[in-house]
């Protein structure tokens, strides 16, 4: 396992940021999904040893998060959410410095700095001062410094924030390639569902400092609920109430499409029976392909 956390608690003063987080992350790319303020960045900072949990224990790549942070940081690459760099340095010197601080010999650090800068698409501008870089270039540079020492595990904290659509697509493709072909495990923290769905095969949904759901994205979509999309004629309220009493979640979109999320083992014939009882005509009934957005909305409890 890459990451094993048990009962992690952390508070910022009186505000509880993490409340008994249990987490296991294996191979491949895992998405850490949650709304802003859910505790994603705090969790990453605990795994890096920046913050010490008030309670609980955990291991990253076999090393204890409380006592062996130095070993963890040697094997982990971290791409922070913030725009961060050392002013006055060109990209290649900056990346080489980060490599050297990770334990690469000086010459090797410089060699790898050139390589990773080409890899992330900054080859032509690697001698430019990082101060003069655009936001997109700075994102790529942050990815390069995280990769320079050939980490076993990458923590990417909101890697597509402040990027235009093209830049976002390009950086996601890079991350996808790293996760799928470079034998580097990736933990991608984001509140952008599409990013996670594109890159990751597993997801951990965190909400208000607690793990709301975890597992393979496909499995979560299948196991936790089924989504049916209906178009009806008649009064929705009674129909909705009855379905909700049966454990379903019912939503109506602006174009009057009714989405019914049913719990596991729910017999879909009950929807028709309920409609008949409430004098509602079902004019369209589609067993819908659920998206990560649906899953997220359901476990986090937002529309």
């Amino acid at each position: 396992m890459s990451i094993e956390l048990q009962n992690i608690h952390y508070s910022y003063g009186k505000v509880k940021a993490l409340n008994g987080v249990n987490l296991t992350v294996g191979e491949g790319a895992t998405g850490l999904l949650g709304p802003n303020g859910a505790g994603k960045s705090t969790l990453i900072k605990i795994m890096l040893g920046f913050l010490t949990p008030a309670e609980g224990q955990g291991k990253v790549l076999g090393y204890d998060v409380r006592t062996e942070q130095k070993f963890i940081r040697r094997l982990v690459g971290y791409m922070p959410e913030d725009e961060c760099f050392i002013p006055g340095l060109d990209a290649v010197t900056f990346t080489a410095l980060m490599g050297e601080l990770s334990g690469l010999p000086r010459q090797e650090a410089m060699k790898r700095a050139h390589e990773v800068l080409f890899y992330v698409g900054l080859g032509e501008s690697r001698y430019r001062l990082v101060d003069t870089y655009s936001s997109g270039m700075k994102q790529r540079l942050k990815l390069a410094q995280a990769l320079v020492h050939d980490p076993k595990l990458l923590f990417l904290d909101e890697p597509t924030s402040s990027l235009d659509p093209t830049g976002r697509q390009e950086i996601l493709e890079l991350i996808g390639e790293i996760a799928s072909t470079k034998d580097i495990r990736v933990l991608l923290s984001s509140h952008i569902l599409a990013d996670i769905e594109l890159i990751c095969d597993r997801v951990v949904i965190i909400n208000k400092g607690e793990i709301a759901a975890t597992g393979r994205i496909e499995d979560l979509k299948m196991v936790n609920y089924q989504l049916y999309e209906l178009r009806i004629k008649g009064e929705l309220n009674g129909f909705r109430r009855e379905l909700e009493e049966a454990g379903c979640r019912v939503e109506e979109t602006e174009d009057r499409l009714v989405k019914v999320y049913t719990p596991p083992g729910f017999d879909r014939r009950r929807i028709f029976l309920s409609a008949a009882r409430n004098g509602v005509q079902v004019r369209q009934f589609v067993c819908s392909q659920t998206s990560l957005e649906d899953l997220f909305a359901r476990v986090v409890g937002v529309d």
Binding site: L48, F50, K70, F71, R73, R74, V76, Y78, P80, D82, E83, C84, F85, I86, P87, G88, M98, L101, S102, G103, Q145
Partner: peptide, 20 residues
């Protein structure tokens, strides 16, 4: 700017994400 610049450009976390 030795430490002030690192604070300003949030570079401290880059240093401490290494075995430093």
């Amino acid at each position: 700017g030795l430490i002030a610049d690192d604070f300003r450009h949030k570079a401290i976390q880059l240093y401490f994400a290494r075995p430093l």
